[in-house]
Amino acid sequence: MPDQIYLRPIGTTLSPQSEEGDCIRLAGGMAYAHRFAAILRRDGEVVERWRFTPATVDDVLGQLPDALGAEAEAQWANLRMAHPPIAMGARTVRLDQPQIMGILNVTPDSFSDGGKFLDRPEEGRAHAAAMLEAGAAIVDIGGESTRPGAPAVWEGDELERVIPAVEYCAAMGAAISVDTRRPAVMDAALHAGAHMINDVSALRHDPRSLELVAARACPVVLMHAPGAGDDLHADADYECIMLDVFDWLRERRDAAIGAGVARERIVLDPGIGFGKSVGENLALINALPLFHALGQPLLLGGSRKRMIGALSNEVPAHERLGGSLALAIAGMNAGVQLLRVHDVFETVQARNIWRGLRDAALTDFSDVPA
């Protein structure tokens, strides 16, 4: 395995003036980073680490071998990249601040709200409308549970669950994402009014998915999961969770681009909870700023996940609001652009307060007497 270089932001700040301008605006958002680590990996092991700031970046990158230097320069540019809005039909979703993706599960067995909206279109419609009114930028519709141990769903059943939900959300004018790994469901959902594909298998489950997404020219979320078959949680074996997931997402990004998917339409998701221990999930969340070096918008899906229960006396899924908000705020602080959540009203409110604090930090009141 050739040597690999990774540029990880390790110090954030509230504003440029806090560091006398020696910082960058992370991925064009509302988070700023001023300290970084260049990590050299050889044969799966981290062998060297250099710390730097924007003022000293040239000194560090200039001492790298040519091959690593080019990759490091690309990652440095990616960390500073401002992403254009995502076009979703008549709507556009800006990525210069965190946006909320509200979850609509039309399944009998999802870990949090399975069965609540299945075969109850009036309740599903009301839930979608409430999420949009609360400030969700996107509604994410899923017809298959991907929790550990969940049985695979027959394609016909998934279509019967998902398409009516897409149609009533489309009638509201919503920006719609469909959480599926089956090309037939992707195609039917896009025809019914969906705009984005959110694939937990990163377009690996069916080789036709890559061709379909490229042909339909739609935005797509590629999520990390270690399992290659029906069980997405299987085959988890990591040497360094953050770097392994980084490499995996880079490979899937490049595979999608090679298949004809436009780079500006690709969103990446580190896959919190999929084939990862509590410790590995925590390490990934702490390392979220690193993934901006891949040059794509990021999605974080930590809402009501099992790790919250594990750290909170095993509280059931519907009692994990506090933990879900803590993870959402961690994502905001890391510059994550899309937050996939169950509790839209509360998360939008938290985002708005967070945004207000960030805006206020841009005005330096340090010289104003108390």
Rank of each mutant, 00 (worst) to 15 (best):
M223G: 08
Q4V: 06
G142N: 07
A126S: 12
A255E: 15
S366E: 07
R8E: 14
A259R: 06
A82E: 12
R42M: 07
G21C: 03
S18M: 14
R304K: 12
A317Y: 13
V153Q: 01
L95F: 06
I5H: 00
L288T: 02
E251G: 10
L14K: 13
D206Q: 08
E158A: 02
F111M: 12
P226Y: 01
L64S: 05
F365I: 13
L95W: 07
E264I: 09
G335T: 09
F36V: 09
M307W: 04
I141N: 04
V185S: 03
W76S: 02
M242H: 13
W354C: 04
G69T: 02
A360H: 08
D59I: 13
E45I: 14
N281L: 01
A370N: 11
P297H: 10
L95T: 03
G173H: 09
R161S: 01
L321T: 04
C23A: 13
N78W: 06
A67R: 12
R49G: 07
S324F: 04
A192H: 09
D359H: 14
R358P: 05
S209D: 11
L203S: 05
G258D: 11
A87P: 05
R252Y: 04
Y32G: 00
V220R: 00
E123D: 15
G115P: 00
L268H: 01
L243C: 08
D199T: 02
E45F: 12
R340D: 08
H34M: 07
A283V: 06
D206E: 11
D230T: 15
D66L: 13
V220F: 02
D109N: 13
H292G: 01
R208E: 14
D96H: 09
A90Y: 06
P369Q: 06
L362I: 00
A137H: 01
L338N: 05
T180S: 15
Q17H: 15
A225Y: 02
D206T: 06
E158K: 02
D254E: 13
P85C: 10
A129L: 11
R216G: 03
A262R: 11
T53I: 00
G273C: 04
E239G: 15
L294Y: 10
I39L: 11
P289Y: 00
A255I: 01
P369S: 10
S18G: 13
A228E: 15
R8M: 14
L311P: 06
I86C: 11
F246Y: 15
V315D: 01
D367T: 15
E314N: 15
T53L: 02
L290S: 03
N281S: 07
G135P: 05
H233W: 06
S312A: 14
L362D: 12
Q99I: 03
A184H: 10
E48P: 05
P226G: 03
P9W: 03
G301D: 08
I103L: 11
Q349A: 15
C23H: 07
D109H: 03
E167G: 04
L40H: 13
L159R: 11
A33N: 09
E346R: 09
A262I: 08
L14Q: 13
E45C: 11
P84T: 09
A33D: 06
G260F: 04
A129G: 13
A55T: 08
G229W: 12
